[in-house]
Simulated scan of single mutants.
Amino acid sequence: MGPVQWGDVPTWVAAIFAGGAAWFAYQTIKSQRQQISEQQQFIAEQSINLTLERSELHAAAEDRKWAQARQIHMHHREATATTIHGVAGDPDHWIVTVQNSSEAPVHEVDVRFGTAHLAAEVYEVPPSAVHGPNPGERIVRPVHLLGARRVVRFLSQHWTAATVHNNRPQLLFTDDNGVRWTLDSHGKLEEAPADGSP
């Protein structure tokens, strides 16, 4: 057995440099992988933040959209015509008072009774007489403009008590941003269908 051959110096230098280059390349790839992982995590976090911000902006926009509509109130009651002898009979019509409690006007205000009946009479009412008789001026329906803090009253036709009961009032109006709304006699507020049907 003879002495081990270690080769010449240039071969050793080349081997050391090759090893160093391989180690440097490994460290570079490892560092890049870590950077890519951190960037992916950052992008994922930003995506979550953007989704939350969009959700908050959408919720705020929805609140603004509904803000005025929620300030339009409908007070309704079944009413009875009194006979010439002062005796009240069964309810024979509806009295519906619409109050705009917002700071902006609403448009195309109308009340329907059931699915087919329209108001027989409409009056502009002073705010102080919201729950009183009809001291105001008679106007036409639909009410094209109901100003801020203004009140109107709609009266149905006179019917039998059963017809009155089966034809509850529904308010329709367009807010100051052009959105059409319906408010039923149970207080359910909804955006009206695009085709304008109640």
Rank of each mutant, 00 (worst) to 15 (best):
Q46F: 06
R150V: 06
Q34F: 09
H73Y: 13
V125D: 10
F173S: 02
Q157A: 14
G2D: 11
R141H: 15
S156P: 12
P10R: 04
E124H: 12
W12E: 12
I72R: 11
N100T: 09
V106D: 01
E137G: 07
A116G: 05
V179I: 15
N166S: 06
N177L: 06
H58Q: 14
F24A: 15
W159R: 11
A148H: 05
R33G: 14
G114N: 14
G114P: 09
H58F: 11
A162T: 08
P193S: 03
A44L: 15
E45V: 13
K65Y: 06
T182L: 14
D92N: 15
K188T: 14
H131D: 14
A162K: 12
R141F: 13
A161D: 05
A79C: 12
W159E: 01
A61L: 13
R70N: 09
Q71P: 02
Q170G: 01
G136W: 03
N166G: 00
H93G: 05
P169F: 11
Q34E: 14
T83Q: 07
E53M: 13
Y123T: 04
V13T: 15
S102L: 03
Y123V: 01
A81F: 08
A69V: 04
H131S: 09
E56Y: 02
I139D: 07
R112W: 13
